[in-house]
Design a protein around this nucleic acid. Structure first.
Length: 221
DNA sequence: GACCAGGCACATC
DNA sequence: GATGTGCATGGT
């Protein structure tokens, strides 16, 4: 069984720091977390650029934008009706309870904020953790599809493991270090894209070295 | 033209 | 409780 720290060091050695989730502001990162749901980041950037051009990349201004206009600006990110509703749910909390201030919002505790975000329609565990880690700087591990897939294929978690169980795999043994969690998640997406897609390309995968002699990467998951 | 992308909620069994 | 399906655009 490979330890999370060993997996991290192996991926970091193979790919180097990813310096992920570039966003000019925490608010932009927060929006990006919703917009990137099942969507490539390139499309998300177009939607964020639309918001910037329209000069509504600000909690208060965006909250005042009519639904139809927001839908139009978010179109490039896909699921634009759905995501407009989700962004509005987020803005309702941010503006209603915290006066539109992310700084104010992130004064809360990790666990209470996580619960609060999860109570919103459209914010699931991955989006909540992404907001808390990447925008808020809280040490919570973001588990995405690639993380699940990489761990299951290599036999490092049981096949039935759900989101919380995968997250516990990391939280149990790693220091609660936001910069490391940030980098680690990005590295999983990197190795996932290159080797653990739906059609796996195991040749040259840096994680192969961590498997026991009889271990194999199970490509069917 | 098929398939995929940094999910989530809801329906149905 | 588990499994299936809708949501939508843009790139390969």
């Amino acid at each position: 069984m490979a330890a999370p720290q060993t997996i991290f060091e192996t991926l970091l050695a193979a790919y180097g720091p990813q310096r992920w989730w570039p966003g000019d502001t925490p608010f932009e990162i927060m929006l990006g977390a919703v917009l990137t749901q099942n969507t490539s980041w390139k499309n998300v950037e177009k939607a964020l650029a639309n918001l910037r051009d329209r000069e509504v990349l600000d909690p208060i201004k965006l909250n005042e934008l009519p639904r139809e206009e927001m839908e139009e600006l978010l179109k490039p990110a896909g699921y634009f009706r759905l995501k407009t509703a989700r962004v509005k749910n987020l803005l309702a909390l941010l503006c209603g309870k915290y006066g539109g201030s992310l700084e104010e919002m992130f004064r809360g505790s990790l666990s209470s904020l996580r619960e609060e975000l999860l109570s919103l329609n459209g914010i699931g565990p991955e989006t909540a953790d992404a907001i808390l880690l990447y925008a808020g700087g809280f040490p919570t591990f973001v588990v995405d599809l690639y993380t699940h897939r990489v761990l299951k294929r290599h036999g490092w978690i049981e096949p039935e493991a759900d989101y919380e169980m995968v997250q516990d795999f990391f939280h149990a043994s790693l220091e609660r270090d936001a910069p490391q969690f940030n980098e680690f998640h990005a590295l999983f997406v990197k190795v996932g894209k290159e080797h653990c897609g739906k059609t796996p390309k195991c040749s040259g995968c840096p994680l192969e070295s961590l498997l026991p002699p009889s271990g194999i990467c199970e490509p069917e998951w």
